[in-house]
Each structure stands twice: as structure tokens, then as C-alpha cells.
């Protein structure tokens, strides 16, 4: 049932179980105008319930006693109603002190009937104690309030710090995602260009063969019609030794060797390289095994070399 309670239901139950004062609002966590109106409506329903009862006029003495108290007069003693027979419980009656008895000035006051002095003293002591109690209560209340405010502020600061941390993490993640997205877009664009290039009718294709004639490695170089854009795919190369890299070389005119970059293949995966430029009058392409990071001029053994045959697609 509790899980199914609506805000209205909770308002009703709160109104029924509220103490003497009307409910402030529907729910502490929902001080909206609607909730306050809801609480008000059901409070008024409760206020109407006693109208079902037959009204009863109190005895006139009750009003007289009340008004005497309101005027600060001594109230006339109200004799109990016929049904209000005194019983033993009245001696330990916890009710508020009854109104003072009527002052009887015409009657001579006996000395044994004058307990007024000690009562005054008692009242005086009470008056001196109450301000101190009130002050102590106020101090306690202020202390409690300060502590509560401090705790609340600390919690809010912790919450803010946590939210800022979460926000920073979110921003980092977003930055990484955007970076990855940019990389993917770039890769897709390159793939699109490469695909367009290798499928273009004017592209030239040059196969790469192992120099030793035994390696299973193979390569294919695609060169666009502008002799600048190129795309190289190599497969079957074993990973290089830890201090070694494969290096691509362009063999330009007069045998000049121009580096095209280094790479280290992943076992079982094809190596793809591409660029928008290549040296002018390139005659051939060679792949060598060089020290890690590459060198300015080839020093290692040639692994693959262009076959020297160019196919026009």
C-alpha cells in the first residue's frame, strides 16, 4: 500500500495524524501551491466532521470562568455538574492549574489560612528560574541550529565537489568521444579517398614481391592519375624485432632513395599506408628492415621491392 500512495493520499494521512495545528503543506518535500491547497482542503474536511454531532451548550459558569480569566479577574468557582462527581483521580490531576478561587474580602483572614508569603516566594523563584531556563534553551537551540547549518553546508560542499568531479569526468569522456569520433571520421574519409583511388579507372597498380623469393609477404601500390596520391597495402610480413622497424623507400630518378615512413605490422593484419604526395619521377618502391625509428638512407636488407611492372586499371 505504501508504495502505491499518491501525494494526495499521503496528505490525507498526514492531516489525520497531525497534532493540534493544521497541516503546513501536503508534504515537507513538496511545498508547492498545489500541495498546500490539498492540505488545506483535507484539513477543512476534518474541521467539518464535528458538525455531525448534536451541539451542546456549555454551562454558563464555563464562559464566566473563561472571561474572568481573560480579564485577569478572579474567576468564580464552578461547581461540578451532577455527573462530575469528584473521584480519586482528581488529587493527581495533571491538568493545568484551575483558575483561582474568588477573593473573599469580607471574611476575616486567619493567620493559619495565609500561605500567601511562601507562595509569593515560590512564584518569585520560578520567575528567576524561567529566564535562565529560557536562555539555556535558546542557547541550546542556537547551538543545535548552528551545528545543523554547519553539517548542511559541509554536505552541500561535498555534493558540489562531487558534482564538479562528475562534470569534469563527463567533459573528459566527452572530449575523448569527440576525439575518437573525429578520428573515425578522418579514417572514414581516408578510406573513402583510398577506395575512390583504387577503384578509379586511371589508377596505376604496382605489385611488391619478396626479394628473397621465399617470403609469403606481398604488397600492392596504388598510384593515382596525378602521380601524387598513393595507397600501399602490404600483408604477410612478420612483426619486426623489438629494435627494428620496416621502412618504405621511394626510388626516385637516378636511384635517389626517399623515405616514405616506417611501420611495424601486427601479426595477421594488413598494413595500409597512404599519402597525398610522393617524390617526383618515382621509379620504384622498396621496403627494408631498419633500426627502430628509421634511418635517412637504407642500411638493412630489402624485404619487398616493386616488381617494376605497372598496370593501368
Amino acid at each position: 500500500m505504501n508504495e502505491e500512495l499518491t501525494a494526495e493520499d499521503r496528505t490525507i494521512l498526514a492531516a489525520l495524524e497531525a497534532p493540534g495545528e493544521p497541516l503546513a503543506s501536503g508534504e515537507p518535500s513538496d511545498p508547492s501551491e498545489t500541495a498546500e491547497m490539498m492540505a488545506r482542503l483535507y484539513t477543512e474536511v476534518l474541521g467539518l466532521l464535528p458538525f455531525e454531532l448534536e451541539p451542546e451548550a456549555p454551562r454558563s459558569e464555563v464562559k464566566a470562568r473563561l472571561l474572568a480569566a481573560a480579564r485577569g479577574e478572579a474567576a468564580p468557582a464552578v461547581p461540578p455538574a451532577a455527573s462530575e462527581a469528584m473521584d480519586e483521580t482528581q488529587e493527581v490531576d495533571p491538568r493545568p492549574a484551575p483558575l483561582p478561587p474568588p477573593v473573599q474580602t469580607s471574611r476575616p483572614v486567619l493567620s493559619r489560612e495565609r500561605p500567601s508569603a511562601p507562595r509569593v516566594a515560590m512564584v518569585s523563584r520560578r520567575r528567576s528560574v524561567w529566564p535562565a531556563l529560557l536562555a539555556a534553551s535558546l542557547i541550546l537551540a542556537l547551538g543545535g541550529l548552528s551545528g545543523w547549518l554547519f553539517l548542511r553546508q559541509t554536505r552541500m560542499e561535498e555534493t558540489i565537489a562531487r558534482l564538479e568531479s562528475d562534470l569534469a569526468a563527463e567533459r573528459r569522456e566527452r572530449g575523448q568521444s569527440e576525439s575518437a569520433m573525429t578520428g573515425m571520421r578522418s579514417a572514414m574519409e581516408r578510406m573513402r579517398v583510398n577506395f575512390a583511388m583504387v577503384t578509379a579507372p586511371a589508377v596505376k597498380v604496382s605489385p611488391l614481391r619478396p626479394v628473397d623469393g621465399q617470403s609469403p609477404a606481398r604488397g600492392t601500390l596504388f598510384v593515382a592519375a596525378d602521380d601524387q596520391h598513393w595507397y600501399l597495402a602490404v600483408h604477410g610480413l612478420p612483426p619486426a624485432a623489438p629494435d627494428r622497424d620496416y621502412q618504405l623507400w621511394w626510388v626516385a630518378d637516378e636511384g635517389r632513395m626517399v623515405s616514405g615512413g616506417t611501420f611495424d605490422p601486427t601479426p595477421g593484419e594488413k598494413v595500409e599506408m597512404f599519402s597525398e604526395t610522393m617524390p617526383e619521377r618515382t621509379q620504384d618502391v622498396v621496403i627494408t628492415l631498419e633500426p627502430e625509428g628509421g634511418v635517412e638512407a637504407p642500411t638493412g636488407p630489402e624485404i619487398l621491392r616493386g616488381a617494376g611492372v605497372v598496370y593501368q586499371l
Binding site: P19, G20, E21, P22, L23, A24, A39, T43, L46
Partner: peptide, 20 residues
């Protein structure tokens, strides 16, 4: 202590009497 926004005077009195 009566708050007109929370209840009518009649209901305020009823709730006080009920509570007492």
C-alpha cells in the same frame, strides 16, 4: 499562532479541541 493560509478559524478551533 493562527495561520489563515492553513485553515479557517472554525477548523483551527476544532483541531485544537480534538488534540486537547
Amino acid at each position: 499562532r493562527y495561520d489563515a493560509a492553513r485553515s479557517s478559524v472554525s477548523t483551527w478551533l476544532v483541531l485544537i479541541a480534538r488534540s486537547r
